[in-house]
């Protein structure tokens, strides 16, 4: 679903100095490879019983995270769901910190106190991964309200899945953001399945987010979520709108989840051939081809692949060697005084 402009540019074999440019494209390629390698490693480590608890992978959905992170400026804020590893990595959080949290080691992002579903790195603008469906849409509104009130130019970006569009908080947040004209971008990653059930089976409209936009006076935006360039350009327009004080955007990105909903799910409910068809449009494959079409040397691409592989390998070894968290953190940070005392 590349735009006519994309196709024209790709055909011409130029475009390195177009609106995106080589440097940004290489950055977005690298982000996608980091996510792919780290998520695949998380899955492998789960099979070795080294990743504990649950995990929700974004294999196949890398372009959404890379395209949005590519369009973000420092200070912009990300709000993620439990399927949040990709968006956390896309903001530059070290792979070791993410894998360490998944492996419940002391070197993890939250030293094992949050787990896979709650990745948070305030220093990177990752304001949390929320495991209650829909909860973070109003929270992102609040962060955007602060920006509006303070006259700050940062934008809050809230990522969620197709299933979220059927919960009340989605609708409350969309209306609230539109009425208050908040600088917030709602990004629906439609991977066709709410957990195990096809989203079409449980939703009154064909496009769960885009077809709801008009209810909140918003433009209907439905894009190819497997093409990082398309995502990037759409994101940029939404950031521009938000920073200009013109309010929120709701963007539905069509994509596909290669693995099951969570680690417990073999995804046997999918029709035969569906996964293979989507893999023909694999976001990293698309992007690698585009870089080559634009004249990027293959060596540059394979070097990125090798560098990322080494980062993920090194992170894996560091996490395997890291100790579990110390027991004394069980009672820290319940309250702002650092402790957990509820009485004198």
């Amino acid at each position: 679903m590349a735009t006519a402009k994309d196709r024209a540019q790709a055909k011409a074999g130029s475009g390195l100095n177009d609106d995106i440019g080589e440097q940004k494209r290489l950055e977005m390629y690298r982000t996608q490879v980091v996510i792919r390698e780290a998520e695949q490693r998380a899955y492998d480590l789960f099979l070795q019983n080294l990743v504990k608890g649950t995990s929700h992978l974004s294999l196949g959905q890398e372009a959404v995270a890379a395209g949005f992170a590519g369009a973000m400026k420092q200070g912009d804020l990300s709000f993620c769901t439990y399927r949040g590893h990709a968006h956390t990595l896309a903001r530059g959080v070290p792979v070791e910190k993410v894998l360490g949290e998944l492996m419940q080691r002391d070197n993890g992002l939250m030293r094992g106190k949050g787990g896979s579903m709650h990745l948070t790195s305030v220093d990177h603008g990752v304001m949390g991964s929320y495991a209650i469906i829909g909860a973070h849409l109003p929270i992102a509104c609040g962060a955007a309200w602060r920006a509006q009130y303070k006259g700050a130019k940062d934008v809050s970006v809230c990522f969620f899945g197709d299933g979220t569009t059927n919960i009340g908080a989605f609708h409350e947040a969309l209306n609230f953001a539109a009425v208050w004209k908040l600088p917030v971008i709602f990004v629906c990653e439609n991977n066709l399945y709410m957990e195990y059930t096809p989203i079409g089976d449980v939703t009154a409209v064909p496009q769960p987010a885009a077809d709801r936009a008009s209810a909140y006076g918003l433009e209907r935006i439905l894009i190819d979520g497997n093409d990082a360039d398309v995502v990037y350009r759409t994101a940029q327009a939404a950031f521009e709108k938000a920073r200009a004080g013109e309010g929120p955007s709701l963007i539905e990105c069509l994509t596909y989840r290669y693995s099951g909903h969570s680690r417990a799910d073999p995804a046997k409910y999918r029709p035969e051939g569906e996964l293979d068809r989507w893999k023909l449009r694999d976001p990293i494959k698309i992007y690698r081809e585009r870089l080559l079409q634009f004249g990027v040397a293959e060596k540059i691409i394979t070097d990125i692949d090798a560098q990322v592989r080494k980062i993920v390998d090194d992170a894996t070894e560091a996490c395997k060697a890291a100790p579990p968290p110390p027991l004394d953190i069980i009672t820290t940070d319940v309250y702002a005084d650092g402790g957990w005392a509820w009485r004198n």
């Binding site: 804020l77 304001m127 949390g128 829909g134 909860a135 973070h136 849409l137 109003p138 929270i139 992102a140 509104c141 609040g142 962060a143 955007a144 309200w145 602060r146 920006a147 009130y149 809050s156 009340g168 908080a169 409350e172 947040a173 209306n175 609230f176």
Partner: peptide, 13 residues
């Protein structure tokens, strides 16, 4: 939900 969520997002930031 929007009221309390917005309060939280504002408080966090």
């Amino acid at each position: 939900q929007a009221i309390l969520g917005a309060a939280m997002g504002a408080a966090m930031t």
